[in-house]
């Protein structure tokens, strides 16, 4: 036992540590992680900084459309509500919706993709053909249809996003698992008598985890954008609650005189989704041992040349 522990220690502390180290050395990844951290912090602290009832949804027509000032950092909107407070709460709502939809979609896709990859044959064909239908409808329209049909409760918005994310996630999980199924260790596990669940959970999933994580991170960006899209069409999160897309569409009327009202939410959407996408990219690079070696090698070569 002791020797085993020792060799483990010498061996770079496992794959997760390697990935983390590679991420840390990537400037873009660090910046995007910091940005995401700030967004998460904002959505946690929104409650502490502003009171929802009195500062976010309470209307104050006397103070409408004020320019940014010390009291109102981003000014006020057409109903006199503090834009800064609304932005913070909107961040929270968007992140909650995105997180829950990505979480549910990932869990479901692992189950469905797992079934599809493990059993193959007719089961696989049926699942994939059904997903093909969902993929055929342009994604924005699919989300619009679901939300219009079911109503704009937050639960249904999450459902719509899950349906939207599911096909591509299932495909990723399935192809990852299928590639890993070719490995000898699966055969070995099967020959020792491991059942499908054991092989799936203990052998296949940990090995496919990287690729799934990358897709998850990128799905976050898609969720943020889509939430904003349906919000912009007025079928997103219900009215008094602040939401980036809806705030943007409400500000459209006043864009001539108060351009910041429209600039700020768009900027938030863009930064948030870009940060998640860049992190996903960096994760992908970090997961790819080939690329990791390449980058290091390149650095070494550069260093040598400089000497």
């Amino acid at each position: 036992m002791q020797t085993k522990a020792k060799t483990k220690k010498q061996k770079n502390h496992g794959a997760a540590y390697d990935i983390w180290r590679s991420l840390r050395s990537n400037k873009v990844a660090v910046v995007s992680m910091v940005i995401i951290g700030i967004f998460v912090l904002i959505s946690i602290l929104a409650d502490v900084l502003f009171d929802y009832e009195t500062q976010v949804i309470a209307q104050d027509i006397m103070n409408d459309l004020q320019s940014p000032s010390k009291e109102h950092w981003f000014g006020t909107d057409s109903l006199g509500r503090d834009y800064f407070a609304r932005m913070l709460y909107a961040t929270r709502i968007t992140l909650i919706i995105s997180f829950s939809s990505v979480f549910i979609a990932t869990a479901l896709s692992i189950v469905i993709g797992g079934i599809s990859a493990y059993f193959g044959g007719i089961v696989d064909t049926i699942i994939m053909r059904i997903l093909d239908v969902f993929l055929a409808v342009p994604s924005t329209l699919l989300i619009i249809c679901i939300v219009v049909a079911l109503g704009n409760e937050t639960v249904y918005i999450i459902l719509a996003l899950v349906v939207y994310l599911l096909p591509s996630l299932v495909r990723t999980v399935r192809s990852e698992l299928m590639i890993n199924m070719e490995n000898e260790y699966v055969e070995a596990a099967r020959s020792v008598g491991a059942g499908p669940f054991r092989i799936m959970l203990i052998h296949l999933l940990p090995n496919s985890f990287g690729a799934i994580m990358v897709r998850c991170t990128m799905s976050f960006a898609l969720c943020i954008l889509s939430t904003a899209c349906i919000g912009y069409l007025g079928i997103g999160v219900r009215a008094p609650a602040p939401e980036w897309g809806r705030m943007l569409s409400e500000a459209q009327e006043y864009m001539r005189l108060h351009p910041y009202l429209i600039t700020i939410p768009g900027f938030f959407i863009m930064i948030a989704s870009t940060a998640f996408n860049l992190l996903g990219d960096a994760l992908q690079d970090a997961m790819d041992p080939r690329l990791r070696g390449y980058r290091k090698m390149k650095k070494k070569v550069f260093a040598r040349r400089k000497k």
Binding site: L248, S249, I262, P265, G266
Partner: peptide, 15 residues
């Protein structure tokens, strides 16, 4: 390119 890929279309058009 990443920013372009992530930009909300309606916002870009408005701007």
């Amino acid at each position: 390119a990443m920013i372009l890929a992530c930009i909300p279309v309606f916002w870009l058009c408005n701007m």
